[in-house]
Design a protein around this nucleic acid. Structure first.
Length: 791
DNA sequence: CATGGCTTTACC
DNA sequence: GGTAAAGC
């Protein structure tokens, strides 16, 4: 099963977020030892050699030049007062469960915002928040929600000096300022605006997400907000720590000009090297000139297509809901003279690894009610000069450390020609340099009849949500709207070339979609390129007969990212933005539950996933009531679902408890269950492995943090340096507010007016409904009302 | 010996 | 199924 792809027609429709915890291991250490907070810190993995290897560095330490890859000793040279917490040692090896647990805690918070959460690593997760964005847009259209500038604190947009500039650009109509050079087609302009608005709304939601993470866990994170995973990931790195960045469609081309190919996820290794050498390129923008076919000839078909797409800022990979790992494993290297030479030593380490695995598997069983069915043993043997690594799998029958250890040993024996040195039954013929065991192929193990309903439901909900989301997006384009002139107008932008409307209307199953993505690329790319490059004499000739041609050279105009601040003609702004509004509104309509087109899921998203659904935060503080379960103040209109939440929680905990007991009795190791061994640093055994077990050096640092103040460049006040950023953000927010207040563009009209507008058609975009003619705002909302002033 | 200990994915 | 690559 390869990765699920979305339909290419929806390439710009999603709002994808990558949440990345800032120097996560350091934050975890700071949280459990608050005294060290704010001081320079680097987490080291214990290793007797030169002070241990650094695996995380916090920002104060980075400021002093400490980086990953350094040894602890080296870090001390750069930063003598650095604090070096160690990864805990258990059973003679690093134990990272502390960080795994912390990551889980964070992910649990993220999951309250959307079931479309994909954990990518212990400290990173992708989220598809399209649904929430659309919902919020609907609320904005209905006047139920207003976007406050403070929702965009610490938010940046690639290609803009400030978020305020970006907001202003969204509001101002480009065509007056730039139509002389740019002959952008109307539908492109509309699509771009729509994209920008969605990303901006997305950013406000991400701000709430990050606030929630901070509030619930104490951890800070950064985030990237874009239309796909690759770009979201890339973007998250632009402003850190504790910041978030939007990547507007229009900024991609410019950004690509200075973006090294190797920065793109998937191209950071040998593949990227190959690509750069073969094609003599360095930056992403240089990839544009290569036809898909050529890329496919150098790599394989799949890869070529992927490269062709990503060169254009397109990545169709879906956010696949995933909370738990697919495998659980642990390993240890035995480099150089630490190589395992004796059978007893081998058994010892297999035993240690097996104990850890058992512990983690049992915890996993408790938490996730699943059982691993396969055990995989990895090891590297030194054979002559070189190390030979092998991996072998065997069935995993029980979560019993001894059994796992002996199975692992047997597996190694079985696959080694000469296991023991001849004439010596305790020395290995080949020294072992690496050992690892992992468990996978999990099977859901719950009695679906009695116990499973709740958890099974949650599993299905995730899957269904995925479909729902893709259907929602799909319906935006494919729902029948034959007589909708407005839609028709921008339809060509999204339309799948060479496909009849008939086909588009028919809901497709995923596999069909995926194939289409890969086969109908060229024609689509024409349109893509037009959006990515701002140049476009080609744009208007961007018709279907044109699409058969392979475009080998795509003009890429320099986009300085600036936007004229001149106030454009009011009428034009109005009509243009209104069009966007209408589209978005329609989107919301078409995305309503559509049982007929929604084959398998066929349910309203919010109803189906009530468990996950988090009511949107309202700006207008609603009346609240105290929850009897958690004592939190809950808005009255959310109280019922809030209580349901507690109930659901209790239920599932009860079920787990019952189930755990059942499992335990069924599955527990025949031997007495090893007590969670008191975490001795030095085990009673006295073997050669003792050298691994060194009492950690006590690190004590007394840093007298001298609080420095600086005068604020904006207001001249003296501000603590540590507070300066926040203070400057305040000024930024104020500025944003000012800019927003200056904007006088009417943006939306009432839905009645929109209706009228639709019927008038968008062929003449300048035309406005009579009811709101000539700038009499009467009932019209203006953009400013979306971004009301800060209190 | 020297980032170590993870986890995932694509390909054969 | 096993290996290599990739990324954190």
């Amino acid at each position: 099963m390869s990765k699920q792809l979305i339909n290419i027609n929806n390439k710009y429709d999603r709002v994808i977020v990558l949440v990345d915890m800032d120097c996560f291991y350091c934050q975890v250490e700071e949280k459990c030892n608050p005294e060290i907070r704010g001081k320079p810190i680097a987490v080291v993995q214990y290793n007797p050699w030169q002070g241990g290897g650094i695996i995380a560095v916090n920002y104060p330490a980075r400021a002093k030049g400490v980086t990953r890859h350094m040894r602890g000793d080296e870090a001390k040279q750069h930063c003598p007062d650095i604090i070096l917490p160690q990864v805990p040692q258990v059973r003679g090896k690093a134990d990272t469960s502390k960080y795994r647990d912390a990551g889980k805690e964070v992910a649990a918070v993220l999951q309250t915002f959307t079931p479309l959460l994909e954990r990518a690593s212990v400290d990173e997760a992708y989220m598809d928040i399209t649904e929430r964005v659309l919902e919020r847009l609907r609320e904005m259209n209905e006047g139920k929600f207003q976007l406050l500038p403070e929702k965009l604190l610490n938010t940046f947009a690639v290609g803009y000096d400030s978020i305020g500039e970006f907001v202003q650009k969204i509001s101002c109509d480009l065509d007056e300022a730039s139509s002389s050079q740019e002959i952008e087609s109307e539908e492109d302009r509309v699509a771009l605006k729509k994209s920008d608005i969605k990303l901006l709304i997305g950013a406000s939601i991400v701000n709430e997400i990050r606030d929630a993470v901070k509030e619930k866990t104490g951890y800070e994170c950064s985030a990237g907000i874009a239309h796909n995973k690759i770009l979201a990931k890339l973007t998250a790195g632009f402003h850190k720590p504790n910041k978030q960045t939007i990547l507007p469609l229009k900024s991609i081309a410019k950004m690509y000009e200075t973006l090294p190919v190797k920065k793109v996820k998937g191209l950071g290794g040998k593949l990227g090297d190959q690509l750069c050498e073969l094609l003599k390129v360095q930056f992403m923008s240089e990839l544009l000139k290569f036809p898909e076919k050529l890329l496919q000839s150098h790599f394989d078909e799949r890869m070529g297509t992927w490269m062709f797409f990503i060169a254009r800022g397109i990545d169709l990979e879906a956010v696949t809901p995933k909370f738990n790992s697919k495998s659980i494993g642990c390993c240890k290297r035995f480099p150089g003279k630490n190589a395992i030479l004796g059978l007893a030593t081998l058994k010892h380490w297999l035993g240690e690894l097996a104990l850890e695995i058992q512990e983690r598997l049992e915890k996993d069983m408790d938490e996730n009610s699943r059982l691993a069915k396969q055990l995989t043993v990895s090891y590297a043997q030194q054979i002559g000069e070189n190390d030979v690594s092998s991996t072998r799998s065997v069935p995993l029958a029980t979560y019993n450390a001894e059994r796992i250890a002996t199975d692992a040993l047997e597996t190694i024996k079985r696959n080694t020609d000469v296991f023991l040195k001849p004439n010596n039954n305790e020395t290995l013929n080949n020294p072992i340099k690496f050992l690892g065991i992992s468990a996978g192929k999990f099977e859901d193990n719950r009695d679906t009849k009695k116990n499973g309903l709740k958890l099974m439901f949650s599993n299905m909900a995730s899957k269904a949500a995925q479909e729902s989301a893709s259907n929602a997006i799909k319906s935006e384009e494919t729902a029948p709207q034959p007589d909708n002139l407005c839609k028709k107008d921008i339809k060509s932008f999204f339309k799948m070339p060479c496909k009849s409307n008939e086909t588009q209307r028919t809901p497709k199953n995923e596999s069909t979609q995926s194939k289409q993505c890969l086969t109908s690329t060229q024609s689509v790319e024409q349109k893509t390129d037009s959006l990515l490059s701002s140049s476009s004499s080609e744009l208007n000739t961007n018709t279907e007969e044109h699409t058969n041609k392979l475009n080998e050279t795509i003009p890429l105009e320099k986009d300085d990212g600036s936007c004229s601040r001149a106030m454009p003609n009011a009428d034009e702004q109005v009509s243009s933005i209104t069009t966007v509004e209408m589209e978005i509104k329609e989107t919301n309509c078409t995305q309503q539950p559509d049982v007929t087109t929604n084959q398998s899921t066929g349910n309203d998203y919010h109803l189906t996933y009530a468990e996950f659904y988090c009511a949107p935060v309202r700006q207008v503080a609603p009346a609240t009531e105290q929850c009897t379960d958690c004592n939190k103040s809950v808005p009255i209109d959310q109280l019922q679902s809030h209580r349901d939440f507690h109930l659901a929680l209790q239920l599932s905990q009860q079920q787990r408890e019952d189930y755990r007991n059942e499992l335990r009795s069924k599955f527990a190791s025949p031997a007495a269950k090893p007590k969670a061994a008191p975490q001795l640093k030095v085990p009673a055994k006295n073997t050669s492995i003792d050298k691994f077990l060194v009492t950690p050096a006590v690190v004590s640092e007394t840093v007298t943090a001298l609080e420095l103040s600086e005068s604020c460049s904006e207001c001249g006040k003296m501000i603590f340096t540590s507070d300066l950023q926040e203070h400057l953000d305040y000024h930024a927010a104020r500025k944003l507010q000012l800019e927003l207040n200056q904007m006088e563009m009417r943006m939306a009209v009432t839905s009645v007016q929109q209706q009228g507008k639709k019927e008038t058609g968008t062929g003449s975009k300048r035309k406005r409904p009579a009811s709101s003619s000539k700038g009499q705002p009467a009932k019209a909302n203006n953009l400013s009302s979306y971004f009301t002033r800060m209190s």
